[in-house]
Amino acid sequence: MSSLTLSTLTAWVRNSAVYRSIIRHGVADTNRNRSLVIFENLFLHVHPVKVREKTLKFTHTFWLGGITMVATFVLFATGILLMFYYHPSVPQAYRDMKELMFVVDNGVFYRNMHRWAAHLMVLGAMLHMLRVFYHRAYRPPRQFNWVVGVVLLLITLLLSYTGYLLPWDQLAFWGVSVGTNMAKEAPLIGKPLRFLLLGGNIVSENALLRFYVLHCVVLPAVLMLFISVHIWRIRKDGGVQGPPEKDPGEEVEP
């Protein structure tokens, strides 16, 4: 029996029946196995097995969509952590903020991370949209994915806005008061919509609970749905589209 080294340990794990029941392909040293890495994995198979080499260049997309996506992952992770300490009621919500900041270990860190990742997500989505516009990547066959992107931007803004109320501090209360009064000005539907959204005529405990449910359940679910469509369509529409070709003759056919 050989002595225990990292490589023998790895080999032992890779050859074990349990590992082979989870991952059926061998080491990714051949192109066949590298293909299997992608399409035998639920999470990686949104990718094609091969990609055009030039799409890997940083300036092709500036990774803006990817950065927004990472911010979203961070928001899910930190958001779930914050939910363990948060009660959507008045004034307990504000006390929970204080508890997070002064009592809970790493509470400040995760709250900060959630807040800054939210800003990054909004900024990233906006810059991603501008990048796609200036690269003219909205052109056929990507029209529909552009529209999905606009919906995603709106969901992102709504998520950020509903989250803004949750700390129940002065900033939150008046930011949301002003915003929902804006909705009141919409003809016909404005006032009933605001009443339903706030669960009353003023920003109160009902509004806090409603914004909490929207922020933690409804909007994230809708976001995941549209992100799935968005990413699936990137692949169906022929991969990421970078800057337009210098020579129009080399453009995509349709």
Partner: peptide, 12 residues
């Protein structure tokens, strides 16, 4: 659902 979401008692 819309009817359900409409608050019936307000503590204002």
């Amino acid at each position: 659902v819309a009817d359900f979401l409409e608050p019936k008692v307000l503590f204002e």
